[in-house]
Amino acid sequence: MIHFIAGVVSSSNYWFIVLRSTAPILLVTLGAVITAQAGIMNMALEGSMLWAALVGVIVSAATGSVWLGLLAGIAASVMVALVLGFFALKLDANAVLSGVALNLVATGGTVFVLFALTGDKGISSSLPSKVLPTLTIPLIKDIPWIGKVVSGQNIIVYIAAISVVAIDFILRRFTVGRRIKATGENLDAAKAAGIDPIKIKFFTLVISGILAGFAGCFLSMGYTSNFTSGIAAGRGYVANAAQVVAGGTAVGSIFAALLFGLTDAMATYLQNIGMMPELIQALPYAVTILGFVVVTWVRDRRENERKRKLFASAATKSATKKEKLHGV
C-alpha cells in the first residue's frame, strides 16, 4: 500500500492530474480568501460557478467563440457575487443565508434555463459548445519530469497559477490590500480612516466572482466539455473550508487547495487497487475538515503561547520589550 502510494506520488501523471483537479478549487479558494479578508463570507461561490459553467457553455455555443463564452460566464459569476453583495451589504441580510439561497437559485435556475433552452435537464450535450485550449509551454515541456506535469494543461490551470500571484499582489502589494485587511480586521478603524467598507467588500466580491467564473467555465469548457446539472459538485463549499486552512493568504490557498486536490487524485488511484470507491471518495472532504480543524487548533495554541510569554515578561517586570517600545 505504502509502496503503491509512493509509486503514484513519484509519477508525473499523478501530479498532472493533481494540478488539473486542484485548479478549480484553488481559484474559488482564492475567491473565498479575499472576501474573508474583507470580513464577508462568500457562501455563494457554488452558485457563481454553476452560473458561469452554464452561461459559458450557452454563449460559446451561440457565438461559436470560446472566449466570448468565458467572458459571459465570468460576467454571470460576478453577477451572482453582486447580488450577494446587494442583499448582504445593502439590505443587511445574513450573508451566509443569502449565499445559501443564491446557491439554491443557481441549482434550480441553471437546470430551469437549460431545460427552457434545450429541453434537456441533465447535460448540455445537445449544445455545440466549445472547449478552452490546452497550452504546451515551449521550453518547459522538454524538461523530463516537470514538463509532463506543467506543460499541456488547460489554459485555466495557468490562469489559476497567475491568480495566486495576482491575489498575492492585491493583498500584499497594492494599497487596496491594506484597505481590505483593515475592513476585515477592524471595520470601525477602516471607516474612521475614511474607507468605505461596503465598497471594499463589493470589490472583493467582484474579484471572487471573477475567480469563481474562471473555475466554473473551466468545469464545463475544459475539465469536461459539457455543462451538467450540479457540475460544481460542492467545490464552492470546499473553498470556504479551504479558505480557513489558507490562513488568509494567497500562498496559503495553494496548500489548502492542494490538500483537497492531492487526496482527490489519490482517491482515484487508491480505487484502482481495490479500495472501496465510496469510502475513498469521502477522503478529500474528511481531509479538508481535518485540515480545517488542525489549522484553527494550531492558531489558537500559538495565540495562547504568545499570551503566556507576554505575561512571563510582564510579571518579571524585566519588560525589555516594553521599554524598547516606550522609549525611542
Partner: peptide, 26 residues
C-alpha cells in the same frame, strides 16, 4: 484491465478524471 467506479451516473468530471488516470498512468 484498469477499472474505476464513478459512484454516480451524472458526474462527468469524475469519470473524466478516472479515465485520464487510466489512459495516462496505466
Amino acid at each position: 484491465i484498469i477499472y474505476n467506479y464513478v459512484n454516480s451516473f451524472t458526474d462527468t468530471a469524475k469519470a473524466k478524471d478516472q479515465a485520464l488516470v487510466q489512459y495516462k498512468s496505466y
